[in-house]
């Protein structure tokens, strides 16, 4: 299967990835081969198999509803490029 160029460009936009022209060619080929590989699964009989949402045979443990974490805002904000008055700053986004 070959990956349509438009399709790849759309995926790149959705993932906010800036992919150059030549990379697009190469990635298209690689992704197509991966999909072909995975496609082999389509030959397996799965109509009686429950969809697998998780590989582990475990159930989600639950946590008691209580505040147990202290927030060190100053420490966390040191990791951010820009902060002011307690806010994380980002380039202006207005819808």
């Amino acid at each position: 299967m070959t990956f349509a160029r438009v399709e790849l460009e759309r995926l790149a936009t959705l993932a906010s990835l800036d992919i150059g022209r030549e990379d697009l060619e190469r990635l298209g080929g690689e992704l197509s081969r991966i999909l072909d590989f995975v496609r082999q699964l389509e030959t397996a009989a799965t109509h009686e198999t429950e969809p697998l949402t998780h590989p582990l045979e475990l159930n989600q443990p639950l946590r008691f509803d209580a505040v147990a974490e202290t927030v060190d805002r100053e420490r966390y904000q040191r990791d951010a490029p820009r902060t002011e008055s307690g806010y994380y700053l980002v380039p202006r986004v207005i819808e």
Binding site: D65, V71, R73, Q77, S85
Partner: peptide
């Protein structure tokens, strides 16, 4: 397990999981 109280100073109730730090694991509130 950070608080949900309304009206706190900005980002004083945003912990590592809320901030999406790598390597953290969400655990569901019963």
């Amino acid at each position: 397990s950070t608080p949900t109280r309304y009206g706190a100073e900005p980002n004083t109730q945003a912990g590592l999981i809320d901030l999406g730090y790598p390597g953290v694991l969400p655990v569901l509130n019963q």
